[in-house]
Design a protein around this nucleic acid. Structure first.
Lengths: 233, 233
DNA sequence: CGATATAAAATCCTATAGGATATAGTATTG
DNA sequence: CAATACTATATCCTATAGGATTTTATATCG
C-alpha cells in the first residue's frame, strides 16, 4: 500500500482510559461507502464496482471487499455472485407500510416509557433537538430537507435512548438508515405539521404524561406516514 | 485456488425460471462460519483467526475476510483492528430483558394478525410445526434441547409469516440467531409447559380468535422468559 | 437495418506474498 | 521467584497478480 496518509491515532484516551486504536483501512472504506449511500452519490439499486472504488479511494481491493461484505451484512448493499455488488433497492410501498407498522408498535410504547423516565436534563436535550429543527438555513430545498430529516431522526433516537431499551433503539436506528435514503429521494416541503407534532410530544414529556406521550407519538407517526405516501404514486 | 470441489451449479431453475448461480467461495465460507457459530463450535466471545480458517477450510484469506465482514455487519462477530475477529459475546441479562420486551411488543400483535388471517392450510402447517416439538428422539439431552429450540423458533417464525409483516419477521429472525446461541449454552429440560402454551396458541388460531391469540402469545413469552431467567444466576 | 457472432475491455473472484503488529516463549536481572 | 527485556512465532492487514466471467463494442450476415 503506497498510501502515506497519516494514521488516525489520537493521544486522547477514551472515557475508559484506553488509548484509541487507529482506524483500519477497511473501516475507513466502510465509512466512505456508507457516506456515499447516505448522500445518494451511490443511488439505490445502482452498481458498485470494486475496481472503481480502488481507483477512487486509492486503496487495494482487499479492504474494499471486506467493507462491502459488512455493508451486505447490514442490508445496505446486495451481492450477486460473479456480477458484484449493488446498492440495496429503494424501499417499496410494502416495506414502507411494514416499517410504519413496526414503528407504530415500538415507538408509542417507547414514548410512554420515555415520559415515565423524564427529568429536567433529558427534557432539555429533547427540546434542544426539537428546536434545532425549526431553523431554516440555506436555500437549497433538498439540502434543507436532508438536514430536517437527519434532525428528525436524532429527535426520535433521543426519545428511544431515554426510553431505555437499547435493542429497540438499535433496531429502529438500523431501519432509519434505509428510510433516510428513501426520504432523500422523495423530499417534500418541510412542513409545520411535523414540528407541531413534536411540540405535542414535548408537552407530554414535560408533564411526564406517559399515555399522552404514547398517543402523541402514534398520531405523529400516522401523519408522517400519510405525508410520505404520495411518493409511491 | 487448488480446491477442485465440484461447482454447486444445478440445472433446476428456481421458481422464477432463472438458472441458479453457482455459490461463491465467500458465500460458502459464510455458511461454514455461521454453522460453527450456531453449533457453538466457535463459542461466544472466542477468537476467530483467519489463518486457522484458511487451514481448516482450505481456501485463501480473501473469501474468509469477506465472509467475516458480512458476519460483522450482521452483528454475529466483532472485529477489533489489528487484533482480529471474535464471536459476538453471549447476551447479557440486560439484552435478554430488552429482547423479551421487544418480543412482547411485536409477537402478541402479530399473533392476533395471524389469527385474523388464519385458514385451514396455515393452521395445518402450524399444527405440524407444533406437533413435531412433542417428539423426543435421542438420548443426548443437549441435542434434544437444541432440536426443541430450533423447532420452537420455526413455530414462532411460521406465526410471523402468517401475520404478514416481513420486516417484523426478519427483525425477530435476526434476533433469534443471537438468542439461539444463548439457549444452546444454557439448555434446560424440555418442559411440558411450553408445549401446553403452544396448544393454547393453536386453539386460538383454530378459532380465528385474535384477542385470544394475542393473550396466549403474551403469556407464552412471559413464561418462556421466566423459564430462562435462572441462566443469569 | 436488425440479428447474430466475435473480439476486446471491464470486472469479479481468489490466491499469494510480504510488511506490520500482537502474542507467546525464553532469558536475564534484582 | 517475580518482574523485565528480548526473541521467536503467529496473526493481521493490505497490495498485487492472474485466471474466469460478464459486459460492451465491433464485425458480419441475411
Amino acid at each position: 500500500m503506497q498510501n502515506r496518509n497519516s494514521m488516525n491515532l489520537t493521544d486522547s484516551p477514551d472515557p475508559s482510559g484506553f488509548i484509541q486504536r487507529a482506524n483500519s483501512l477497511s473501516g475507513s472504506v466502510y465509512d466512505a461507502i456508507f457516506a456515499q449511500l447516505m448522500s445518494l452519490k451511490i443511488a439505490p439499486g445502482s452498481r458498485i464496482t470494486v475496481d472503481n472504488l480502488v481507483r477512487e479511494l486509492n486503496v487495494s481491493q482487499t479492504p474494499i471487499r471486506e467493507a462491502l461484505g459488512r455493508l451486505e451484512g447490514e442490508g445496505l448493499v446486495v451481492k450477486t455472485h460473479l456480477i458484484g455488488y449493488s446498492a440495496a433497492p429503494q424501499i417499496a410501498r410494502r416495506r414502507f407500510d411494514e416499517l410504519y407498522q413496526l414503528r407504530l408498535l415500538l415507538e408509542p410504547d417507547s414514548a410512554a416509557r420515555a415520559a415515565a423516565a423524564m427529568d429536567k436534563e433529558k427534557l432539555a436535550a429533547l427540546q434542544t433537538a426539537a428546536g434545532v429543527m425549526g431553523r431554516r438555513e440555506g436555500t437549497d430545498e433538498r439540502l434543507r430537507y436532508s438536514t430536517f430529516a437527519r434532525q428528525d431522526a436524532l429527535f426520535h433516537d433521543k426519545i428511544m435512548e431515554i426510553a431505555g431499551n437499547e435493542l429497540i433503539r438499535e433496531t429502529l436506528s438500523h431501519q432509519h438508515t434505509h428510510f433516510h435514503i428513501f426520504r432523500l429521494m422523495f423530499h417534500s416541503r418541510v412542513t409545520e405539521e411535523a414540528l407541531d407534532e413534536h411540540e405535542a410530544l414535548l408537552t407530554a414529556f414535560a408533564a411526564g404524561d406517559a399515555p399522552g406521550a404514547e398517543r402523541a407519538m402514534r398520531i405523529h407517526l400516522e401523519r408522517s406516514r400519510d405525508r410520505l405516501l404520495p411518493a409511491f404514486e
